[in-house]
Design a protein around this nucleic acid. Structure first.
Length: 868
RNA sequence: GCGGACGUGGUGGAAUUGGUAGACACAACAGACUUAAAAUCUGUCGAUCGUAAGAUCGUGCCGGUUCAAGUCCGGCCGUCCGCACCA
């Protein structure tokens, strides 16, 4: 007897599991497969509580499915390339590689301490040449398949990190990592043609292929891809054949060709070729463009920015109205990156166009009439009319609704050979070049004679050269200066050439790792047969912060890998679950003379005294700040190591899964972890009281004639099995935990129950907690004298006969208000229930002297008596 | 502005297709045990009135449907998330 001692118990069981090699997985045709994967961690140094929550969920699912008889794959790896390693190298004078692998060593140990059922034989880091060699091969295959493009383009340049960012990595005009305002630069860049797959990426969101994904993630991806159907058309220049940029007409894009009759001007983006061409000979145009480019791109700047334009010295002909000319402006609100960078303006039905037209005195002709408006008097004031209606003032379109008019105008423009229907995307191709050392080298060679040449497959991998530590303290990319590595001969012509010195965006590394786990040691990127067995991932679990970037890239990669014969699936993740963050209170030093960033105090350094929280150092109260996501900057972090040391890994896992629904944020509190710890002890104590009770896995037949307390415990056992199973299957871990609490409470009150029933209850309890708290469960299982291992025992099933009682309590309402309750046999007829309800004294007090007009009986639930 | 999620005790949160609102836990309070504390155990715990039995009110606000609404419908208010001068 004695308290449960996780410090001794947990390592002991992990050793036993290790020696039995329990969690190594092989392909096995007899059992159905189940692939559960949590987003792999970046080896930043130590695991944090967020990891604990993420991996506790994944391990819960893995163990649950394993007990249900599935052949479970549950692997782990490291997303190991990336800038923090270079920053650390800069600060410590070391090498990114040493820093990264040292962190992996530490974090692997920490993860192992959590008692996860992971197949460590499949572990890899993305910075292993054995991994990135295959990534280079995939890239070469994509290149050959036409999915890669090298082009000169404006890029988002992060001046702090000195690298290019993908559009997805620019948030509010700032770098996603550095927070520095992003600059525009023109560079030659590698692109993956994700827009080639835009339609399928979008369609799969709605055609059932991603039914296992949360709606919010699908919506985010839908918005991000941003498909719109419209018309690309040319407006002929009035009285001139060609413009200074060499074009013979202005090509615009519109989704509202139905409003063509309301057009009153055209406008182009400040960096549109036409505008730039005019700027060369026109100081005013040049000045206007420069002015536009100076304006910020932040959200605020855009919102406040006034619609501004500058006329260009030419006009265009209206396609439908003979003799009507439209002026052409350069305007600050047109984006070069969307459509053709040019529009026609219809002020009556677009707010931006209206603002612009009012400012420059352009005509406003309404052409869409609201349903109840009078065509003779309808005008547009300061608000554009953007809803549906019937077309008027528009010749052949008059009387149509908006969708019909859109079709009709497109047809007419196509007949006139002035344009065609097209689809536009907000999504742009994925720029994958990064001017960094610590990434996967791009396998390409630049030759003056042959141009850009792929590295031959047999020369892979292109390994990162070892460079001296001081290289990381020099601005720019160390690969640019690694002369021995950089200078090669051209594989085509044999003349001197140079390697590509950019490396891949690290999001590429995480875009296919799930497929590599199927056969992590094979000498091909993906072993097709084994990948066909394991993929898709049946359950993927991670943070919602990856809803767009990582998940979209992985979906694209999977399609590209299918095109190039590496995979057979086109969606990588059949079911996705996005878990909430772990938050914590923040504490502030009240001394306001200090800078804010120096005032945050660690939770470990404060003490709760009655109602106030004081700083250990001074004994003075601290300011209790908001409950926020744990972050190093606000110091509101707790160390999983310290928690495990004090309470054990099981208690930490349990707490992270209790209370809050898994998709919601959970607040880390001292009270919460203590509560979990108390339960560990309570379970242990309860099981220990039944030590060796019927020490066998198979209890045999149920004894006949059990007394009432025994029957009650059996019912509690089976309803716990039923409820917990259902809750786990539906990701309601907090409810599953609540049911286990109820079951434990029932079990502790049932000491007089029959031994057989107690043995059944204790065994079931142990099995039910096993996916949550594997060490404790194994210890309990051994204590009961059952055969190891509980994690390999089939999941218990509930006897449906024990889920219903033979009597049931019905609430009785009078006029919808609860006035009493009656106990009736479960199979009682409606008439019997009605009779009993009407005879109940509590009910009769409210029906006395009144006429019963109606009685509604819902079997098993409620009786409602309507009186008047 | 567009799209999505949500709003329940002091707190985290339960409530399957409309059918006993507040499961389970945290905090708080009272009691038992103890020299004492911790731990553990028992009890109370939405609000108001009442010694009690009980009554009335109560799921962001207003209205509606229904025998019955946290749940459905209409209209507001508020919070969070994503996108955003996307033509």
């Amino acid at each position: 007897m004695g308290r449960y001692n996780p410090k001794e118990v947990e390592p002991r069981w992990r050793k036993v599991w290790d020696e039995a090699d329990l969690y190594a997985t092989r392909e096995d045709g007899d059992r159905e497969k189940y692939y559960v994967l949590e987003m792999f961690p970046y080896p930043s140094g130590k695991i944090h509580i967020g990891h604990v929550r993420n991996y506790a969920m994944g391990d819960l699912i893995a163990r649950f499915k394993r007990a249900q008889g599935f052949n479970v794959l549950h692997p782990m790896g490291w997303d190991a390339f990336g800038m923090p390693a270079e920053n650390a190298a800069m600060q410590t004078g070391g090498h990114p590689k040493d820093w990264t692998y040292a962190n992996i060593e530490v974090m692997r140990d920490q993860l192992k301490q959590m008692g996860l059922s992971i197949d460590w034989s499949r572990e890899f880091a993305t910075c292993d040449p054995e991994y990135y060699a295959h990534q280079q091969k995939l890239f070469l295959d994509f290149w050959a398949a036409g999915l890669v493009e090298r082009r000169e383009s404006y890029v988002n340049w992060d001046p702090v990190d000195m690298t290019v960012l993908a559009n997805e990595q620019v948030i509010d005009g700032k770098g996603w990592r550095s927070g520095a305002p992003v600059e525009r630069r023109k560079l030659s860049q590698w692109f993956l043609k994700i827009t080639d797959k835009a339609d399928d990426l979008l369609d799969a969101l709605d055609d059932g292929r991603l039914d296992g994904w949360p709606e919010n993630v699908r919506t985010m991806q839908r918005n991000w891809i941003g498909r719109s159907r419209g018309l690309k058309m040319r407006f002929a220049y009035t009285a001139c054949e060609t413009a200074p940029d060499g074009t013979t007409g202005l090509e615009i894009y519109t989704t509202r060709p139905d409003t063509l009759y309301g057009a009153s001007f055209c406008a182009v983006a400040p960096d549109h070729p036409l505008a730039l061409a005019f700027a060369k000979g026109d100081k005013a145009v040049e000045a206007f463009i420069a002015d536009c480019q100076r304006a910020g791109t932040s959200e605020e700047a855009i919102e406040k920015a006034e619609k501004k334009g500058h006329p260009l010295p030419l006009s265009v002909d209206h396609p439908f109205i003979d003799g009507k000319k439209l002026p052409v402006f350069v305007a600050n609100f047109i984006l070069m990156g969307y459509g053709t960078g040019a529009i026609f303006g219809c002020p009556a039905h677009d707010q931006r166009d209206l603002d612009f037209a009012r400012k420059y005195g352009l005509e406003v002709t309404p052409v869409v009439l609201p349903a109840d408006a009078d065509p003779a008097t309808f005008t547009v004031g300061d608000e554009a009319y953007t809803d549906d209606g019937s077309i008027f003032n528009s010749d052949f379109l008059d009387g149509m609704n908006v969708p019909d008019a859109i079709d009709a105008s497109i047809n007419r423009i196509e007949e006139m050979e002035q344009g065609e229907a097209t689809t536009q995307y907000r999504l742009r191709d994925w720029g994958v070049s990064r001017q960094r050392y610590w990434g996967c080298p791009i396998p390409a060679i630049h030759c003056d004679t042959c141009g850009v040449v792929p590295v031959p497959a047999e020369d892979l991998p292109v390994r990162l050269p070892d460079v001296a530590a001081e290289e990381f303290n020099t601005p720019g990319n160390p690969l640019d200066r690694a002369e021995d590595w950089k200078n090669v001969t051209c594989p085509k012509c044999g003349r001197p050439a140079t390697r590509e010195t950019d490396t891949f965006d690290t999001f590429m590394d995480s875009s296919w790792y799930f497929a590599r786990f199927a056969a992590a040691r094979e000498d091909v990127p993906v072993d097709k047969a084994r990948a066909d067995y394991w993929l898709p991932v049946d359950q993927y679990i991670g943070g919602v912060e990856h809803a767009i970037l990582h998940l979209l890239y992985a979906r694209f990669f999977t399609r590209a890998m299918k095109d190039t014969g590496h995979l057979s699936v086109d969606e990588p993740f059949a079911n996705l679950f996005t878990q909430g963050m772990v938050t914590h209170e923040t504490y502030l030093d009240p001394d306001e003379t200090k800078k804010l960033k120096d005032r945050w105090i660690l939770p470990d350094d404060v003490i709760r005294k009655d109602d106030t929280i004081v700083w250990e150092k001074t004994g003075e109260p601290v300011i209790v700040g908001a409950i926020e996501k744990m972050s190093k900057s606000k110091k509101n972090v707790v160390s999983p190591e310290a928690i495990a040391e004090t309470y054990g890994a099981d208690a930490a896992r349990w707490f992270m899964l209790s209370d809050s629904p898994p998709e919601r944020d959970v607040e880390w509190t001292e009270g919460g972890i203590v509560g979990a710890w108390k339960l560990m002890n309570r379970i242990w104590e309860t099981v220990e009281a039944g030590e060796g009770l019927l020490a066998q896995n198979d209890l045999g037949v149920v004894p006949a004639e059990l007394d009432d307390p025994s029957m009650a415990l059996r019912r509690a056992t089976h309803s716990a099995i039923d409820g917990v199973t259902d809750d786990i299957e539906n990701f309601r871990f907090n409810k599953a935990i609540a049911r286990i609490y109820e079951f434990v409470n029932a079990l502790r009150k049932a000491e007089g129950a029959h031994d057989w029933v107690r043995a059944e209850a204790l065994g079931s309890l142990t099995q039910l907690i096993a996916p949550f708290t594997p060490h404790l469960a194994e210890e309990c299982w051994a204590c009961l004298g059952r055969e190891p291992f509980v994690c390999d025992v089939p999941w218990p099933s509930a006897d449906p006969g024990l889920l219903v009682d033979d009597t049931v309590t019905l609430a009785v309402q009078v006029n919808g208000k609860r006035r009493g309750e009656i106990s009736v046999p479960t199979d009682a007829s409606k008439a019997d229930a009605e009779k009993l309800a009407l005879a109940d004294p509590d009910v009769m007090r409210h029906t006395e002297g009144k006429t019963v007009r109606k009685v509604i009986v819902v079997p098993g639930k409620i009786v409602n008596i309507v009186v008047g």
